[in-house]
Design a protein around this nucleic acid. Structure first.
Lengths: 214, 214
DNA sequence: TGGTGTCAAGGACAAATGTCTTACTATTCA
DNA sequence: TGAATAGTAAGACATTTGTCCTTGACACCA
């Protein structure tokens, strides 16, 4: 559920070795890599660390689109669609190392490096499918199943992802998330451990419960 | 809100004229162009007519991803990601004419026709942005605003889109949709006309109401 | 030490949405 | 014609989720 893309990482590492066009940059925890409504000029590819990608709506509420790590691309959608604003904000949840790819280099890679070109298309298609499926899942099923699915995917909650972030990812309030987690504890599917994190207690029961809905 | 893409339409029409690789096919209203879980072999581009793209979840409920018309592409995501199943079903809501592009021709166009290649990338990026934005909007705002937005985008409900389809697009039940429409009638923002369709009654009020949330 | 601020958790209530059922309308067909 | 059927709308109630507020734990500091 924290997305990664090994193929992209390997390709950009190769490109970085072979040319001087791509450089490394480091962000501190909490810094924004790109900010919603800023003018897009650069594409980034994550080398190391975890980011949160989110949209801030006019009423001030955030919706988290995904959590990403090594090999995930940032800002390519805006350049490909020739938009003059990023439509989401990317925040570093940990210390973050990224490859910096200026617009001209990105355009050049798209036109001249067929591996890069094909990989970008594949990444876009994958994301579109995942986003669509997730959108469907969250709209159709009650909250409990979405939380079950996250626990199933995660194993346990990553320490860098706060409950507020997780709630924003699910499109709900922290109150609702807590209620649902409590319900899962009551049903003896998970336990809440000493660092206020949840853990799977009864994996077979979890899987059985999930399978009812898959 | 019924999506179209003029650039894609023009390009595929040119390709169809220049080569014998692309043929036309007609579907009747209610027929499936592609079906979830079928093996992907063909990409279609809509020439004329309206389709509904939806995901059927395990519990039998449908979530409508979009309504599409001329120039919209079908099945390209599955081919680009090398999946062995379509992840959604495409149904003809009217008589439908499509260009049929077999997998080998699609691959060839991607590799040899740079205009086609770039356009596909742009289409994928656009869709990804739209899907993400919509997902965010529907999760963050209450139903009333999503319905307002649809009415604003539509002007009025297309006759080929049933209330059930519209409800599935919003991820809600028809009961909830009716309740929300009634609320808008009570507030004198819309009227329900003789063909059981809704119409904007008080456009300035509608716009004013929407703008509170944009 | 004790005061103060911050934050996470959860209780109580309100609001939104879903489920189930009934009623109404129109259509088909024996 | 009239019974059966399907589709739509909405009432009543149940369930889910959000909002608001209180409590308790902890850190920081005068």
């Amino acid at each position: 559920m924290i997305k990664t893309n090994l193929k992209v990482l390997q390709l950009i590492e190769k490109i970085a070795r072979d040319t001087a066009n791509v450089i490394l940059k480091t962000f501190k925890k909490g810094e924004y890599i790109v900010q919603q409504n800023e003018k897009p000029k650069i594409v980034y590819i994550i080398k190391k660390g975890i980011t949160k990608c989110f949209i801030t709506e006019e009423n001030g509420k955030d919706y988290v689109l995904d959590f990403s790590s090594a090999g995930e691309i940032i800002g390519e959608v805006e350049l490909l669609t020739h938009k003059d604003q990023y439509f989401s904000t990317i925040e570093a949840l940990t210390i973050l190392e990224v490859y910096v790819i200026p617009k001209v280099v990105f355009d050049q890679l798209n036109n001249e490096d067929n591996d890069f070109n094909m990989l970008i298309k594949e990444v876009l298609a994958h994301r579109l499918m995942n986003t669509s499926k997730r959108s469907s899942y969250q709209q159709i099923y009650p909250l409990l199943y979405s939380v079950l699915k996250i626990i199933y995917d995660f194993g346990q909650l990553d320490e860098h992802i706060s409950k507020q972030d997780l709630a924003n990812y699910l499109g709900i309030t922290v109150r609702s998330l807590n209620r649902t987690l409590q319900e899962l504890v009551d049903k003896k599917i998970i336990t809440i451990n000493e660092v206020d994190n949840f853990e799977i207690k009864n994996a077979p029961l979890l899987i059985k419960t999930i399978e009812q809905f898959y």
